[in-house]
Simulated scan of single mutants.
Amino acid sequence: MSRIRAAFHDPEGTRYGIPTFWWKGAPPGYATRRQLRAAGLRPGGQPVAAQILWRGVGGTRTAYLYRVELARPKRIATPAQRRAIDAALTARRTCRVCGVVRPYCIPRSLGECVDCAYPEGVAP
């Protein structure tokens, strides 16, 4: 085992407070939030079960691990919530001046679409 791996190997949690493993060294049954999300799961309120430490740009990096068997299925938005999200996103794309729904979000700095803000077609 290399010195870097040995520095981050603490499966009992005596050095770091929780079980700690090196990069790609966690045993099966643990997953990060992204891995849970990819599997259609969420942590479901459980505390962090372990961590992974590795040396990266800017110092030591950390990834928290959760137990897969305690994870719950992801919640799905209701039809009413989906309608509300669609309405909010449409409002962000609608120009207040001309009322046209644009294929991009209206810049908050302008408060109107680019065509209304720069009618000559010349942006500063």
Rank of each mutant, 00 (worst) to 15 (best):
R3D: 12
D86T: 14
E12M: 02
E112W: 05
Y66G: 00
A84I: 04
A38P: 03
P73D: 11
P28K: 01
A31R: 10
R72I: 01
F8M: 09
A123E: 15
G13D: 14
P28D: 14
P119D: 04
Y66N: 04
L41W: 12
R93M: 07
G13T: 11
A88S: 12
A50E: 13
P47I: 04
D115N: 13
T94G: 07
L36K: 07
R108D: 08
G13Y: 04
G45E: 10
V48E: 13
K74Q: 08
S109M: 10
R92V: 05
V100W: 13
R92S: 14
V100E: 09
L89N: 02
P28H: 05
A38S: 06
V57A: 06
T14W: 08
R55E: 05
G99Q: 11
C105G: 05
Q35P: 02
Y104W: 15
D115P: 06
H9W: 14
A38K: 07
L36T: 03
V57S: 05
K74L: 02
S2N: 07
T78W: 04
K74A: 05
I4Y: 11
L65V: 07
R42K: 07
P11G: 10
G13K: 15
V97L: 11
Y64L: 03
V122I: 12
D115Y: 09
P107V: 14
D86L: 13
P124W: 04
A50T: 08
T32A: 06
L65Q: 08
R72V: 00
A63C: 10
A88N: 01
W22N: 05
P27R: 14
R33H: 08
D115K: 13
A31V: 00
A39P: 09
G44F: 01
